[in-house]
Design a protein around this nucleic acid. Structure first.
Lengths: 229, 229
DNA sequence: GATGCAATTGTTGTATACATGATTTTTATG
DNA sequence: CATAAAAATCATGTATACAACAATTGCATC
């Protein structure tokens, strides 16, 4: 879900504002708790309040903004409940994907995985973190395609996006790349060998790395978290 | 997700319009492909276009409306891809929930399940389909609570809602109640006996009933479906 | 009668003005 | 100086008017 409501090619100013604000929120240029004013944004973009309102509304529907009528609009804080939910969903989905991938992987699929791994190694060598981020997405997408459940990637990406905003707070990703690639290697090889349990084990280990990162970050940035019970 | 953007107690006219239209769409009073006009709705609710616009925007973000700039706004048709996605997600989540429920179920949990089953039997006897619908939701919610993953119910409900709109097209639910309750009984007993595999098997059988219903409906109502490849 | 063009209608997008309520600042008072 | 009430400010909610474009309709023409 959470996608483009307009497939149409006609981009409106609402689309522009929405995209920009979204990226600023996800990259933490706008931080949890920051207040946003419709009139300020309108001035910034040189438009009236109306398009800004629409953009705000969309962002609120994606749980990135909290509109408090008659008070103010703020960037949403992290919620431990939402994080747990996201983690749970992703874990459940990925297990299914990996089991199916191990079942259906053929020579073409194996070749695609190997190629993806090679590109990741290349990104590692040139320490290109941004490129690795994209390759990470691509890797999981390939797994979904091998598993013949393309749509599962929608879900994974949606959940991953939520957590990415949190992880942007974290330490240098550069240091994590070797471990992550090693995980990917293990996953790919298990899938290629039709070893479903092995793939799931490797996948769960892969996901569990996130847990530690999140624990670490949430301890250090309590002010970015919702004070939910 | 798909929740209340406003936790606040101040309900606006946008909230009213949103809730009403949403229920009309989900209950198929408004049918896939139906055109909605902002001015018509505004007149109907006795407000200006603006609140209607906001409500439309929210519904579009929940994939219930499709806003086509400068053209029209229509109730979204069903998409087989979305249905498959929903089915996949729910299946994966429910498996996890059932495994955990079987692991964590204690006497209190067992008692709650038994009580829920009794209420369902009562609804069956009085042929109260509406009541059974709510009890169905409640049953799955109890399972999530026993599994200590309350948040999983959010996901299940979100996915269930999507499919419910489709199933509203279907045959009399009255006839299905006995089977569904029998499923619930099997699930509950397996969970109470800490039989994870048994619970999952029963759960998957339970979900697979939906598949047949959906297949049947989609064959008969092709015009309500997106012409996606 | 069929066809192509033009005017009309209907749709959403945007700008502006005002309403309403929460927040902040100011001011008066003890 | 502390405190409380009142006024000003600032936030979003709503109404109205106009703009831009797509679809439809009607009419003239062949």
């Amino acid at each position: 879900m959470a996608h483009a409501a307009q497939i149409s090619d006609a981009r409106t100013s609402v689309d522009d504002i929405f995209d920009l604000l979204r990226s600023e929120i996800l990259s933490l240029k706008l931080r949890p708790g920051d207040k946003l004013s419709e009139v300020d944004m309108a001035a910034r973009f040189g438009v009236s309040r109306q398009p800004v309102r629409d953009a705000f509304s969309r962002l609120a529907n994606q749980d990135l903004l909290l509109i408090r009528p008659k008070r103010a609009t703020v960037v949403k804080r992290f919620s431990t409940r939402e994080i747990n939910k996201s983690r749970f969903v992703r874990s459940a989905i990925e297990e299914r994907v990996l089991r199916r991938a191990a079942e259906f992987c053929d020579l073409v699929g194996a070749a695609r995985l190997d190629m993806a791994l090679a590109e990741q190694e290349k990104a590692l060598k040139s320490k290109d973190v941004a490129a690795f981020g994209k390759l990470d997405y691509a890797f999981h997408k390939i797994l979904c395609e091998i598993a013949q459940v393309d749509f599962a990637f929608d879900v994974i990406m949606a959940e991953k996006t939520k957590v990415d905003r949190l992880c942007a707070l974290g330490l240098a990703k550069e240091d994590q790349m070797p471990e992550l690639i090693a995980d990917h290697y293990q996953i790919a090889k298990a899938v290629e060998n039709h070893d479903a349990d092995g793939a799931v084990n490797a996948g769960m280990k892969h996901l569990s790395r996130l847990d530690e990162t999140i624990k670490h970050i949430s301890a250090q940035n309590a002010d970015y978290f919702d004070p939910d019970e």
